[in-house]
């Protein structure tokens, strides 16, 4: 836009119309959106950033090694062990820091995989709309009829619990939800004229998926990614807590709660020791709350989809 004060003397209507309008840069637009974000969203983003920082720099932040064992198990909180040690003498703070890396990393990989499977198949089903769509949709219906924690438990009794099988099982079970969402939003986009035009131009299926449909269904998928991530994160934590998820010596928040749970009985003698098992559980809860806050704000901003919930 032209500045009227400077150019008043040489002002012509044609020049104003002809002037190139400067578009706001991507970062500028993000910053504007962020400035308007409510307090809860800011809180969520700061918490997530802190978690990511801890996860990435875990080896530098942690005072000791991930599986390093010290002489005194159940040591109280002091200078050498900020949050004490666990049942076989590993430093709790160190395990909390490494746990951020392991638990979040595994949940992230799982969510990405489930979006790859569910999103890809959902798009194919939405474009195809024939027997393939029917087949996929009906199998998803059946898979969703079994509660996913129960299904995961059953599959884990067959395949030996390992990180890989855990990621794969949960990703497949969770991809059913992604499939449903992707299919239902993509169906409305597939019928658009520009998709038809791309088909007539002779573009390949993969190209149409990536360039015509995906950009138009991004906002609900991004929001769903946040929700699915916290769900996957809670499921993995619950499975590890039940002792069939992430296996020792890998530090993980869910199994840390399980291992140290007995310390809660000593709360009346040493309150700090008593709340030690709650620390990893609180870490899990705080991250889920943070993700939920950010997703809530994002949904409000992009669509108002969840206006009244």
């Amino acid at each position: 836009m032209s500045e009227p004060t400077e150019e008043l003397s040489t002002y012509t209507a044609a020049a104003e119309v002809g002037a190139v309008r400067v578009r706001r840069g991507r970062f500028e637009r993000w910053w504007l959106a962020l400035k308007k974000a409510p307090l809860s969203a800011w809180f969520g983003m700061i918490v997530i950033a802190a978690y990511v920082f801890v996860a990435v720099f875990a080896p530098w932040l942690a005072p000791y090694g991930e599986a390093e064992i010290f002489r005194t198990p159940f040591a109280p909180w002091d200078e050498t062990h900020r949050f004490g040690t666990d049942q076989i003498g590993r430093d709790i703070l160190t395990r909390l820091i490494y746990g951020a890396r392991n638990t979040m990393g595994i949940a992230l990989v799982t969510t990405l995989l489930s979006f790859l499977i569910g999103g890809g198949l959902g798009l194919v089903a939405a474009i195809n709309r024939s027997w393939l769509d029917q087949l996929l949709s009906r199998s998803v219906d059946v898979l969703m009829a079994i509660p996913s924690l129960i299904f995961a438990l059953m599959l884990l009794s067959i395949f030996k619990p390992s990180v890989l099988s855990l990621i794969f099982i949960i990703a497949v079970l969770d991809s059913t939800r992604v499939f449903r969402l992707t299919r239902s939003v993509a169906i409305n986009v597939v019928v658009m004229d520009y998709v038809e035009a791309a088909k007539l131009r002779g573009e390949r299926l993969g190209w149409i998926m990536r360039h015509e449909i995906l950009p138009n269904i991004m906002p609900p998928l991004v929001a769903e990614f946040g929700l699915r991530f916290s769900f996957v994160f809670l499921t993995i934590a619950a499975l590890s807590f039940l002792g069939v998820g992430i296996q020792p010596p890998t530090a993980d928040w869910g199994s840390m709660v399980r291992d140290n749970a007995s310390m809660i009985q000593f709360a009346q003698y040493d309150f700090k020791a008593g709340i030690t098992p709650l620390l990893p559980a609180a870490a899990i809860g705080l991250l889920t709350v943070a993700v939920n806050f950010v997703v809530d704000w994002f949904l409000h901003k992009t669509s108002g989809l969840r206006d009244e919930h």
Binding site: S230, L234, A237, A238, F241, V257, A261, I264, Q265, F266, A267, Q268, F271, G274, I275, P277, L278, A281, A282, I284, G285, T288, V289, N292
Partner: peptide
């Protein structure tokens, strides 16, 4: 309620144990 939903069940359970069983012994854990 939004906070309760986001918390893992075992966290809620252990917080209740901490307060109602360990610190103030009203219910068995």
């Amino acid at each position: 309620t939004l906070t309760t939903i986001s918390m893992p069940e075992f966290f809620v359970a252990y917080v209740l144990i901490l307060f109602f069983s360990s610190l103030w012994n009203v219910f068995p854990s």
